[in-house]
């Protein structure tokens, strides 16, 4: 994983995180399948790809101190089967940032592409931060 880390306060709607690439290797997929108690079916589980996107995003910004991030909701759409061994590129942008009383909500849009620049997956994650 690469890319700079910025603070939560600096995130504004429209901000795009530096795209992050992952190789969905056999060892990565085996580890993921073991973690989720699944036997798999010869392709990369779509939620393993989402996990990469989420990790890329959460590793790219620092949280306010003493704050925990809670995954509040998730939307996903899958566009193609992804063979093991493929390299993907995860793109994330801030769609909205909302402050409501003692709760902040960060809404992020995710898009994942394969090496041919074909879209593999897209989604939207809402992260709640009680302050």
């Amino acid at each position: 994983m690469s890319g700079k880390t910025i603070s939560y306060e600096e995130l504004i709607p429209g901000y795009e995180f530096t795209p992050v690439t992952y190789e969905l290797s056999t060892s990565f997929v085996s580890k993921y399948l073991q973690a989720v108690d699944s036997e798999g079916d010869g392709f990369v589980p779509p939620l393993a790809i989402t996990a990469c996107s989420i990790a890329a995003m959460t590793g790219s910004f620092s949280m306010p101190s003493d704050t925990i991030a809670i995954h509040a909701s998730q939307e996903l759409e899958f566009f193609k089967l992804v063979p093991i061994g493929v390299t993907i590129e995860c793109h994330t942008r801030v769609a909205q940032k909302i402050a409501r009383g003692k709760m902040s909500m960060l809404i992020l849009e995710l898009e994942v592409f394969d090496k041919d620049k074909e879209k593999v997956q897209s989604g939207r994650a809402t992260i709640a931060l009680p302050t």
């Binding site: 079916d41 779509p46 809670i70 909701s73 998730q74 939307e75 996903l76 759409e77 899958f78």
Partner: peptide, 19 residues
């Protein structure tokens, strides 16, 4: 979902979830 729908889920599924 994968157990029920196989590759149809993996390649063209959509999901909306609230935790």
């Amino acid at each position: 979902m994968a157990s029920a729908f196989g590759r149809s889920w993996l390649s063209e599924g959509k999901l909306r979830a609230k935790f």
